[in-house]
Amino acid sequence: MPLTPNRDVFITCAVTGSGDTTSRSDKVPVTPAEIAAAAIEAAEAGAAIAHIHVRDPETGKGARDPKLYAEVVERIRDSGVDVVLNLTAGMGGDLVLGSTEAPFPPDPSGTDMVGATERLAHVAELLPEICTLDCGTMNFGEGDYVMTNTPAMLKAMARQIQALGVRPEIEVFDTGHLLLAQWLKAQGVIDDPVMIQLCMGIPWGAPDDIGTLKAIVDNVPRDWTFSAFSIGRNQLPYAALAVLAGGNLRVGLEDNLWLGKGELATNGALVTRAADIVRGMGSRLLTPAEVRANLKLERRW
Rank of each mutant, 00 (worst) to 15 (best):
A116I: 02
K214H: 11
A38I: 08
P105A: 12
A70F: 07
K27H: 15
P29Y: 05
A228S: 14
A14E: 04
A43P: 10
G280N: 08
I231Q: 10
A47D: 10
T150S: 15
T150L: 11
A47W: 06
T266L: 08
A275L: 04
K261C: 04
E125D: 13
N256C: 12
A47M: 13
A163L: 12
M91K: 06
D191F: 00
M195R: 08
L297G: 06
S227P: 00
L127F: 07
L213P: 08
V9Q: 07
G268D: 13
F140K: 03
L297P: 06
S18D: 09
N256D: 10
Y238P: 00
L259G: 04
P128T: 07
L126Q: 07
R75W: 00
F10H: 15
T148K: 06
F226S: 00
G46R: 01
P168F: 15
I190D: 03
I277P: 10
D107H: 05
I49C: 01
D26L: 14
I40Q: 01
M200W: 06
W224R: 01
G246L: 07
I40A: 01
E142Q: 12
G268F: 11
I277V: 15
Y145L: 04
A293G: 00
N6M: 08
A47F: 09
I170M: 15
G90R: 11
A50Q: 02
T148P: 02
Y145T: 07
K67T: 13
L85K: 03
K296Q: 10
L85V: 01
T31E: 03
T225E: 04
A239G: 15
V291G: 08
L270M: 14
D144G: 00
S109N: 11
S18A: 15
R273Y: 03
G143N: 13
I52Y: 03
Q182H: 02
M157F: 09
R222T: 06
R233V: 08
L297Y: 06
A116Q: 01
K27T: 14
W301L: 01
T111V: 08
E71N: 07
P237N: 00
L244R: 12
Q160W: 05
M1F: 05
L253V: 07
T4N: 07
G17Y: 12
L213Y: 09
A158N: 00
V73W: 02
R233E: 04
N234Q: 12
A206C: 12
E125P: 01
D56H: 14
G280H: 10
A124E: 14
T150I: 08
G92I: 04
A102N: 12
Q235H: 06
A47P: 03
A124I: 04
V72H: 09
L249A: 04
I11H: 04
G110D: 11
K296M: 11
I170Q: 03
V96P: 00
G232D: 11
D223K: 11
G62E: 06
T132L: 13
A265M: 07
T31Q: 12
L133H: 09
P103H: 09
A245V: 08
C131A: 11
P106C: 05
